[in-house]
Design a protein around this nucleic acid. Structure first.
Lengths: 342, 342
DNA sequence: CTGAAAGCGCTTACAG
DNA sequence: CTGAAAGCGCTTACAG
């Protein structure tokens, strides 16, 4: 470009001698345009480094070709400690969007605040993906409002019978069950559970549910003394384990509701001189990258984030296009490593 | 909303009895509008859940209130292994954008491909931030093209005398120097360097430069036998250390050009029965979250990602507004942990 | 196959 | 302080 202004389709029309309408058609590969015309127009467009003005075309077509990712985070975490599981999801969502020709807006939010979720209302995005929504009960009110407004959105998280929204989640129940069965097979009898297992955190709740039923099937009962609330951070896992040790109850295994909790708990045990897995077998959930680098490497449940990202985006696009969507539950896979093998 | 259509400023004009122009002014808090009018208009807007159509306002005002983050990654990495240093940068850039009222588009790119950098040309973004551009020499050609086109962009990376673009980087030279001086203080004499130190990777090159001058000042010479190329992944660090060990040269310390390289190298040493720091002192660069959780915890150089994100965004906004920008070099901080202390 | 025209929903001089 | 009008740069019926 020699001038400071960006070229428009009118410039190309002038240069090629066609009307602006024909230029527009040629650029969009409309079949209404002759091969020859298309060629000429596209050639000039290339020379000028012309790009269609998305604001104009979006305004005209009434869709933006963009999705928004609302990423909720714990207010206490700092920049450098974004939950690695969500990082992995972010990667797969970004890729899934790119493959489908959509751009991705991202926004970090505090789950407690009012969300900045007007990307759809302001037409910046055609739909929204929610990741890590915090307290489910609080979330539900907000979700209902979004549904009322006709906002298209999908959530990563537990799939529940009465949910107001569309979600994609992994099979948390089976994951919890698989972990507990594995620990039982290792000969563990007193399996602690670290994580808040209430309807406020339905993923953890379902994992706990699977764990509880596996224990029941083995003729064991769930001892409330062996459960400590924790949210998904190392710090919280460390604190939960410390609290558990201070209770002076016996346990031979720990099922942490997430890998971060497990890693924090292992650090706390290390500080108290407990050996993993000799004294206590440990398992987590998520299979974040650091699980395999933990000492010892951590047994965990893998969620297929690549598949998850694809399905989230596909489901959102279905919603946007008014097609039926089915809520999806993805299979999980138990990954056994040293932390739980005696 | 009872109808399926989103409300427009015309709907509000109709409901309030004002003209559409006045509605627009009232919504934008123009001082030209009376307090009373503003109140009425904004009240109706709230009731309708009206949001200004960004496509229309962006088209009219000719800017988008959006920045784009091009995130280059090694083609070999998978979703779950995004470089944690860049994750930290992503967090701080996202926050910096939000604070300044900008939205952020993100896009993952292969450094080798032609970039999808037309966010600015298509008016989807006012400017672009580049993170992890791969080979600097290859990058320069592309950067020059962007500059020619008048695209506003900033790069995170080395600040070099002849660079075509605007960048923000940390003081890699001082960082390398600080690490080497620290290792020398620990009594190390044969300090290996892991990382490709050429003009293709100027950050590593500068770190190596600081290291080399510190050695020279101590009367030691840089032994090429003690340098192995590596890119910033654990796998590459593992391979580089393996190659170094296969050379059968003596060394008592390793300066890895990044933490990921260091962590991979420590794993390789562990496999060969070498103890850190007793047999070999180790230091990395970046202070990624896993550096403090490594075994042993890793001595490294911290870059202030929070500050970096702010400055990147500020510099880009200056560029966009036509204000002068100065290329910024951020101070670094040596973080000494067990891996290097004997 | 092509062109003239309307219109997407705003913002902002211009006039009063 | 308010309104009528123009115009941002496209896409797409409509007419030929």
């Amino acid at each position: 470009m020699t001038t400071g202004k960006k070229p428009t389709s009118i410039d190309i029309a002038y240069l090629t001698g066609f009307s602006q309408a024909t230029v527009s058609r040629a650029l969009r590969n409309s079949p209404l345009v002759s091969e020859e015309t298309r060629r000429k127009v596209q050639e000039v467009a290339r020379q000028l480094n012309y790009k269609v003005d998305k604001n104009a075309s979006n305004l005209r077509t009434q869709h933006s070709g963009t999705l928004a990712l609302l990423f909720f985070e714990d207010p206490t975490t700092d920049d450098s400690h974004i939950n690695p599981f969500f990082v992995s999801m972010l990667g797969s969502i970004t890729r899934a969007c790119a493959q489908r020709g959509y751009d991705l807006l991202i926004s970090f939010q505090q789950a407690s605040d009012d969300w900045h979720a007007d990307y759809a209302d302001s037409k910046k995005a055609d739909g929204i993906i929610l990741l890590g929504y915090g307290d489910y009960v609080t979330y539900c009110d907000k979700a209902r409002k979004l549904v009322e407004q006709g906002t298209h959105f999908v959530r990563w998280g537990a799939v529940l019978p009465d949910q107001p929204d569309t979600s994609v989640g992994c099979d948390n129940y089976s994951g919890g069950r698989a972990v507990a069965e594995h620990l039982l097979e290792q000969g563990c009898k007193r399996i602690a559970f670290l994580g808040e297992a209430t309807r406020h955190y339905p993923e953890f709740f379902e994992r706990h549910h699977g764990y509880a039923e596996a224990l029941a099937d083995a003729g064991l009962k769930v001892d409330p003394e062996l459960q400590v609330d924790a949210e998904s951070t190392q710090e919280s896992g460390h604190a939960a384990m410390t609290a558990l040790l201070d209770r002076n109850v016996q346990f031979d295994a720990v099922f942490a509701a997430s890998d971060l909790i497990a890693i924090g708990a292992m650090r706390a045990m290390d500080e108290r001189g407990l050996r993993v897995p000799e004294d206590v077998a440990v398992a987590g959930f998520d299979d974040v990258p650091s699980a395999s680098f933990a000492h010892p490497p951590l047994t965990t449940v893998r969620q297929d984030t690549k598949e998850a990202g694809s399905i989230l985006v596909d489901n959102l696009l279905h919603l946007i296009h008014g097609d039926p969507v089915q809520t999806s539950i993805l299979p999980i896979k138990l990954v056994v490593r040293k932390s739980s093998v005696r």
